[in-house]
Protein backbone atom coordinates (compact mmCIF):
# COMPACT_ATOMS: atom_id res chain seq x y z
CA UNK A 1 0.00 0.00 0.00
CA UNK A 2 1.39 3.38 -1.00
CA UNK A 3 1.94 5.91 1.76
CA UNK A 4 -0.44 8.81 1.48
CA UNK A 5 1.00 12.26 2.14
CA UNK A 6 -1.89 14.33 3.43
CA UNK A 7 0.12 17.55 3.19
CA UNK A 8 0.16 17.14 -0.60
CA UNK A 9 -3.60 16.53 -0.59
CA UNK A 10 -4.01 19.67 1.52
CA UNK A 11 -1.81 21.66 -0.89
CA UNK A 12 -4.06 20.68 -3.79
CA UNK A 13 -7.20 21.56 -1.81
CA UNK A 14 -5.82 24.97 -0.81
CA UNK A 15 -4.81 25.78 -4.36
CA UNK A 16 -8.13 24.66 -5.82
CA UNK A 17 -10.20 26.66 -3.34
CA UNK A 18 -8.11 29.77 -4.02
CA UNK A 19 -8.54 29.24 -7.74
CA UNK A 20 -12.32 28.75 -7.50
CA UNK A 21 -12.70 31.83 -5.34
CA UNK A 22 -11.06 34.00 -7.96
CA UNK A 23 -13.00 32.63 -10.93
CA UNK A 24 -16.22 34.62 -10.90
CA UNK A 25 -18.12 32.23 -13.19
CA UNK A 26 -17.51 29.41 -10.73
CA UNK A 27 -18.62 31.40 -7.69
CA UNK A 28 -21.72 32.76 -9.46
CA UNK A 29 -22.59 29.33 -10.88
CA UNK A 30 -22.23 27.76 -7.44
CA UNK A 31 -24.51 30.30 -5.79
CA UNK A 32 -27.18 30.80 -8.47
CA UNK A 33 -28.29 27.19 -8.89
CA UNK A 34 -28.84 26.49 -5.18
CA UNK A 35 -30.72 29.80 -4.88
CA UNK A 36 -33.03 28.76 -7.73
CA UNK A 37 -33.55 25.31 -6.28
CA UNK A 38 -34.45 26.85 -2.93
CA UNK A 39 -37.19 29.11 -4.33
CA UNK A 40 -39.68 26.38 -5.25
CA UNK A 41 -39.50 24.46 -1.94
CA UNK A 42 -39.89 27.70 0.02
CA UNK A 43 -42.88 28.78 -2.12
CA UNK A 44 -44.39 25.35 -1.60
CA UNK A 45 -44.22 25.87 2.14
CA UNK A 46 -46.43 28.95 1.86
CA UNK A 47 -48.69 27.87 -1.03
CA UNK A 48 -49.05 24.15 -0.29
CA UNK A 49 -52.17 22.23 0.71
CA UNK A 50 -53.37 22.91 4.24
CA UNK A 51 -53.39 19.24 5.29
CA UNK A 52 -50.05 17.85 4.21
CA UNK A 53 -49.81 14.84 6.45
CA UNK A 54 -49.42 11.76 4.24
CA UNK A 55 -49.50 13.90 1.08
CA UNK A 56 -46.58 12.69 -1.07
CA UNK A 57 -46.42 16.00 -2.96
CA UNK A 58 -44.75 17.42 0.16
CA UNK A 59 -41.74 15.28 -0.62
CA UNK A 60 -41.23 16.81 -4.08
CA UNK A 61 -39.41 19.95 -2.87
CA UNK A 62 -36.90 17.69 -1.18
CA UNK A 63 -36.03 16.26 -4.58
CA UNK A 64 -35.20 19.75 -5.77
CA UNK A 65 -32.95 20.25 -2.77
CA UNK A 66 -31.12 17.05 -3.70
CA UNK A 67 -30.31 18.47 -7.12
CA UNK A 68 -27.89 20.84 -5.40
CA UNK A 69 -25.37 18.20 -4.26
CA UNK A 70 -25.52 16.69 -7.75
CA UNK A 71 -25.25 19.73 -9.97
CA UNK A 72 -22.87 21.93 -7.96
CA UNK A 73 -20.01 19.38 -7.70
CA UNK A 74 -20.46 18.01 -11.20
CA UNK A 75 -19.60 21.37 -12.77
CA UNK A 76 -16.66 21.92 -10.43
CA UNK A 77 -15.30 18.39 -10.83
CA UNK A 78 -15.62 18.55 -14.60
CA UNK A 79 -13.55 21.73 -14.53
CA UNK A 80 -10.82 20.32 -12.31
CA UNK A 81 -8.71 18.32 -14.77
CA UNK A 82 -9.98 19.81 -18.05
CA UNK A 83 -9.24 23.25 -16.58
CA UNK A 84 -5.69 22.28 -15.67
CA UNK A 85 -5.15 20.92 -19.16
CA UNK A 86 -6.57 24.03 -20.80
CA UNK A 87 -4.37 26.33 -18.68
CA UNK A 88 -1.27 24.22 -19.39
CA UNK A 89 -0.77 23.57 -15.68
CA UNK A 90 -1.35 19.82 -15.71
CA UNK A 91 2.12 18.81 -16.87
CA UNK A 92 4.05 20.91 -14.31
CA UNK A 93 1.78 19.51 -11.61
CA UNK A 94 2.41 15.93 -12.71
CA UNK A 95 6.19 16.42 -12.66
CA UNK A 96 6.02 16.86 -8.87
CA UNK A 97 6.18 13.93 -6.42
CA UNK A 98 2.38 13.91 -5.97
CA UNK A 99 0.91 10.40 -6.17
CA UNK A 100 -2.08 9.49 -8.27
CA UNK A 101 -4.30 8.92 -5.21
CA UNK A 102 -3.19 12.19 -3.58
CA UNK A 103 -4.04 14.03 -6.77
CA UNK A 104 -7.51 12.46 -6.98
CA UNK A 105 -8.24 12.97 -3.28
CA UNK A 106 -7.07 16.58 -3.39
CA UNK A 107 -9.21 17.35 -6.41
CA UNK A 108 -12.21 15.50 -4.95
CA UNK A 109 -11.93 17.12 -1.52
CA UNK A 110 -11.66 20.58 -3.06
CA UNK A 111 -14.98 19.98 -4.80
CA UNK A 112 -16.59 18.17 -1.87
CA UNK A 113 -15.96 20.92 0.71
CA UNK A 114 -17.84 23.81 -0.96
CA UNK A 115 -20.49 21.57 -2.51
CA UNK A 116 -21.34 19.83 0.72
CA UNK A 117 -21.19 23.05 2.70
CA UNK A 118 -23.53 24.77 0.29
CA UNK A 119 -25.94 21.82 0.09
CA UNK A 120 -26.29 21.53 3.87
CA UNK A 121 -26.55 25.31 4.18
CA UNK A 122 -29.48 25.41 1.73
CA UNK A 123 -31.00 22.39 3.44
CA UNK A 124 -30.68 24.15 6.80
CA UNK A 125 -32.10 27.42 5.44
CA UNK A 126 -35.09 25.53 4.07
CA UNK A 127 -35.83 23.79 7.37
CA UNK A 128 -35.32 27.05 9.26
CA UNK A 129 -37.79 28.85 6.99
CA UNK A 130 -40.28 26.03 7.50
CA UNK A 131 -39.85 26.12 11.29
CA UNK A 132 -40.05 29.92 11.62
CA UNK A 133 -42.50 31.06 8.96
CA UNK A 134 -44.61 28.17 7.68
CA UNK A 135 -48.15 27.41 8.74
CA UNK A 136 -47.71 25.07 11.76
CA UNK A 137 -49.75 22.41 9.99
CA UNK A 138 -47.53 22.58 6.93
CA UNK A 139 -44.38 22.58 9.09
CA UNK A 140 -45.60 19.54 10.96
CA UNK A 141 -46.28 17.78 7.67
CA UNK A 142 -42.77 18.41 6.45
CA UNK A 143 -41.08 17.47 9.72
CA UNK A 144 -43.22 14.31 9.73
CA UNK A 145 -41.38 13.16 6.61
CA UNK A 146 -38.62 11.72 8.82
CA UNK A 147 -37.39 9.10 6.36
CA UNK A 148 -37.19 11.68 3.58
CA UNK A 149 -35.28 14.09 5.80
CA UNK A 150 -32.90 11.30 6.78
CA UNK A 151 -32.52 10.41 3.10
CA UNK A 152 -31.77 14.07 2.36
CA UNK A 153 -29.15 14.17 5.10
CA UNK A 154 -27.47 10.89 4.10
CA UNK A 155 -27.82 11.14 0.34
CA UNK A 156 -26.32 14.64 0.16
CA UNK A 157 -22.64 13.62 0.66
CA UNK A 158 -23.15 10.39 -1.27
CA UNK A 159 -24.69 12.10 -4.29
CA UNK A 160 -21.95 14.72 -4.06
CA UNK A 161 -19.37 11.92 -4.08
CA UNK A 162 -20.99 10.30 -7.09
CA UNK A 163 -21.15 13.60 -8.98
CA UNK A 164 -17.48 14.25 -8.19
CA UNK A 165 -16.32 10.84 -9.38
CA UNK A 166 -18.33 11.13 -12.58
CA UNK A 167 -17.23 14.72 -13.10
CA UNK A 168 -13.55 13.84 -12.63
CA UNK A 169 -13.84 10.93 -15.07
CA UNK A 170 -15.45 13.15 -17.69
CA UNK A 171 -12.91 15.88 -16.99
CA UNK A 172 -10.00 13.53 -17.72
CA UNK A 173 -11.43 12.52 -21.08
CA UNK A 174 -13.05 15.75 -22.27
CA UNK A 175 -11.19 18.11 -24.56
CA UNK A 176 -13.00 21.23 -23.39
CA UNK A 177 -14.17 22.52 -20.02
CA UNK A 178 -17.70 23.34 -21.23
CA UNK A 179 -18.22 19.90 -22.76
CA UNK A 180 -16.88 18.32 -19.58
CA UNK A 181 -19.29 20.31 -17.43
CA UNK A 182 -22.33 19.46 -19.55
CA UNK A 183 -21.50 15.76 -19.76
CA UNK A 184 -20.59 15.64 -16.09
CA UNK A 185 -23.92 17.12 -15.07
CA UNK A 186 -25.96 14.71 -17.21
CA UNK A 187 -23.95 11.68 -16.09
CA UNK A 188 -24.42 12.63 -12.41
CA UNK A 189 -28.23 12.51 -12.49
CA UNK A 190 -29.09 8.75 -12.57
CA UNK A 191 -28.75 8.11 -8.79
CA UNK A 192 -31.47 10.72 -8.25
CA UNK A 193 -33.82 8.05 -9.63
CA UNK A 194 -33.89 6.49 -6.16
CA UNK A 195 -35.10 9.75 -4.68
CA UNK A 196 -37.72 10.15 -7.41
CA UNK A 197 -39.04 6.66 -6.65
CA UNK A 198 -39.23 7.54 -2.95
CA UNK A 199 -40.97 10.85 -3.67
CA UNK A 200 -43.64 9.25 -5.89
CA UNK A 201 -44.08 6.41 -3.42
CA UNK A 202 -42.88 3.52 -5.63
CA UNK A 203 -40.30 2.86 -2.93
CA UNK A 204 -41.89 3.31 0.48
CA UNK A 205 -40.01 6.15 2.18
CA UNK A 206 -39.02 4.38 5.38
CA UNK A 207 -35.97 4.76 7.57
CA UNK A 208 -34.81 1.31 6.48
CA UNK A 209 -35.13 2.24 2.80
CA UNK A 210 -33.15 5.44 3.41
CA UNK A 211 -30.37 3.53 5.16
CA UNK A 212 -30.26 0.71 2.59
CA UNK A 213 -30.10 3.08 -0.35
CA UNK A 214 -27.48 5.19 1.43
CA UNK A 215 -25.35 2.07 1.89
CA UNK A 216 -25.85 1.18 -1.77
CA UNK A 217 -24.88 4.68 -2.89
CA UNK A 218 -21.77 4.49 -0.71
CA UNK A 219 -20.78 1.20 -2.31
CA UNK A 220 -21.35 2.63 -5.79
CA UNK A 221 -19.23 5.69 -4.92
CA UNK A 222 -16.34 3.54 -3.68
CA UNK A 223 -16.47 1.28 -6.73
CA UNK A 224 -16.66 4.26 -9.08
CA UNK A 225 -13.69 5.90 -7.35
CA UNK A 226 -11.64 2.75 -7.79
CA UNK A 227 -12.84 2.52 -11.36
CA UNK A 228 -11.64 5.98 -12.34
CA UNK A 229 -8.23 5.80 -10.67
CA UNK A 230 -6.81 4.14 -13.81
CA UNK A 231 -7.77 7.23 -15.80
CA UNK A 232 -5.34 9.26 -13.71
CA UNK A 233 -2.29 7.46 -15.02
CA UNK A 234 0.29 10.18 -15.76
CA UNK A 235 0.94 9.05 -19.31
CA UNK A 236 -2.75 8.99 -20.11
CA UNK A 237 -3.20 12.47 -18.65
CA UNK A 238 -0.26 13.93 -20.58
CA UNK A 239 -0.55 12.15 -23.93
CA UNK A 240 -4.13 10.88 -23.91
CA UNK A 241 -3.06 7.26 -24.33
CA UNK A 242 -2.35 4.49 -21.87
CA UNK A 243 1.23 3.57 -21.01
CA UNK A 244 2.61 0.49 -22.74
CA UNK A 245 5.87 -1.25 -22.08
CA UNK A 246 7.21 -4.26 -23.96
Amino acid sequence: MMALDLSRVAAVVRKELRDYRRKRSIVVGMLILPAIFLIEPVLFVFLGAPDPVGDPSYRAPLLLLLLIPVITPSTLAAYSVAGEREQGTLEPLLTTPIRQLEFILGKAAAVMIPSLGLSYLVFGVYLLVVRLFANPVVAAGIFNEGPMLLALFLFTPLLTGWAIVVGLAVSVRAGEIRVAQQLGMIASLPPLGVVVLMVVGVIAPTFTAALVFAALLLAVDILALRGISGLFDRERLVTGSKASRS
Binding site: R8, A11, K15, K23
Partner: peptide, 15 residues
Protein backbone atom coordinates in the same frame (compact mmCIF):
# COMPACT_ATOMS: atom_id res chain seq x y z
CA UNK B 1 -5.51 33.65 -10.98
CA UNK B 2 -3.00 32.99 -8.20
CA UNK B 3 -0.17 35.28 -7.18
CA UNK B 4 3.47 34.43 -7.77
CA UNK B 5 3.87 33.47 -4.11
CA UNK B 6 0.68 31.40 -4.09
CA UNK B 7 1.89 29.48 -7.14
CA UNK B 8 5.19 28.76 -5.42
CA UNK B 9 3.48 27.87 -2.12
CA UNK B 10 1.44 25.26 -3.94
CA UNK B 11 4.48 23.61 -5.47
CA UNK B 12 6.48 23.88 -2.24
CA UNK B 13 3.62 21.95 -0.62
CA UNK B 14 3.75 19.25 -3.28
CA UNK B 15 7.53 18.85 -2.87
Amino acid sequence: RLTVTENLEFFAGLY
